[in-house]
Amino acid sequence: MKRWEVVRSAILSDIDAGVFEDGRLPGDLVLAERFGVNRHTVRNAIKVLESEGALRVQHGVGTFVADDLVVDRFNSDRRFTYKLLGQNKSLKAEILSINEASVEADIAKHLNIAPMALVAELRSVSFMNDSPLATGTSYFPIDRVPGLAAAFEGEDSVAAALKRCGIAEYNRRWTRITARRPTPQEAQRLRISSSSPVLVETSVDVIPDGLPIKCSSSAIRSDRYEYLIEGNEDDPSRSDLT
């Protein structure tokens, strides 16, 4: 067996055993020292594992276990509880705090409420397979979701808490995606370095009559998240390059 094949086999064993914390592999030098080979041999093994779909390489960021990636398809119902169905991944949320607070003008505008009006402010961290994926804040108009704080008792799901408040159905009105460096607090919660970029998802959800019920802003680990926007094949305006 060639040296790169030995390294490949050992890395696969480590993946199966869940050795790599947060799904991220050590650097080439660390792996080379561990296996007693040169960096070129390690890179050959990683290249093969990437071609086999076991690893995902992001140049300038790192090498990750491929199963550590969330693929998110855009649609009008974008709740995390539904995103991962069929992806063999588990997702849970940790509620950090929920308080009454006044909001700035841009949040008030998104929620169609008066500036400085009181909202329920929810801070949370989402975990995929027990590793942090996203952290953010959601704002709910108090007069539209009375008793929301109490509804979260024993719950870590926004959908379940809203249902307790009498809101069983809501959909996404819009989503905006940008990118930036994480704040020190975000980096700590997501277990990443301050130089690792995050995706920032800002969104507004509405109830069936169109009234905004939630405005959220989340910092998402860009090394673990992928957005997929699918076109409508039946759309006559769609054109393909051949």
Results as ranks from 00 to 15, higher is better:
77 D>A: 14
198 V>K: 06
40 H>M: 07
191 R>T: 03
58 Q>M: 15
168 A>H: 08
63 T>G: 02
217 S>M: 11
99 N>D: 15
106 D>N: 13
127 F>C: 01
113 I>S: 04
13 S>F: 01
68 D>P: 00
124 S>H: 08
220 I>H: 01
64 F>V: 00
44 N>C: 02
204 V>W: 05
17 A>M: 09
224 R>H: 12
61 V>F: 09
120 A>V: 14
242 T>Y: 10
198 V>M: 04
237 S>N: 11
107 I>T: 13
209 D>H: 05
170 Y>D: 05
27 G>Q: 07
207 I>C: 04
43 R>C: 02
232 N>M: 07
69 L>M: 15
30 V>R: 10
6 V>Y: 15
92 K>C: 10
209 D>Q: 05
8 R>A: 14
106 D>G: 03
192 I>R: 05
173 R>T: 03
10 A>K: 12
98 I>E: 06
36 G>Q: 03
217 S>Y: 01
104 E>F: 01
7 V>T: 07
215 C>S: 15
108 A>S: 08
236 P>G: 04
167 I>N: 01
102 S>H: 09
33 E>P: 02
213 I>E: 06
160 A>K: 13
148 L>A: 04
41 T>H: 02
219 A>E: 05
60 G>N: 05
224 R>P: 02
130 D>S: 12
197 P>E: 06
70 V>M: 15
116 M>Y: 08
111 L>R: 08
194 S>T: 10
138 S>A: 12
11 I>N: 00
108 A>F: 04
120 A>G: 09
155 E>Q: 08
93 A>W: 11
190 L>F: 01
98 I>H: 03
109 K>P: 00
142 I>V: 15
67 D>K: 10
71 V>A: 13
192 I>A: 05
85 L>H: 11
168 A>C: 01
55 L>Y: 01
35 F>G: 06
213 I>L: 09
73 R>Q: 11
92 K>N: 14
146 P>H: 06
9 S>E: 14
47 K>E: 10
90 S>Y: 12
72 D>G: 07
91 L>W: 09
216 S>A: 15
73 R>F: 13
119 V>Q: 09
12 L>Q: 03
56 R>Y: 09
189 R>W: 13
227 Y>M: 10
22 D>Q: 08
222 S>Q: 06
235 D>Q: 00
67 D>S: 11
79 R>D: 12
73 R>V: 15
127 F>K: 02
106 D>K: 12
153 E>Y: 04
35 F>P: 06
9 S>P: 01
73 R>K: 12
179 A>T: 10
160 A>N: 10
124 S>R: 12
126 S>D: 13
215 C>A: 15
75 N>L: 08
38 N>D: 15
186 E>T: 07
206 V>M: 08
215 C>I: 03
175 T>Q: 14
147 G>S: 02
163 K>I: 02
77 D>Q: 14
171 N>A: 10
28 D>W: 07
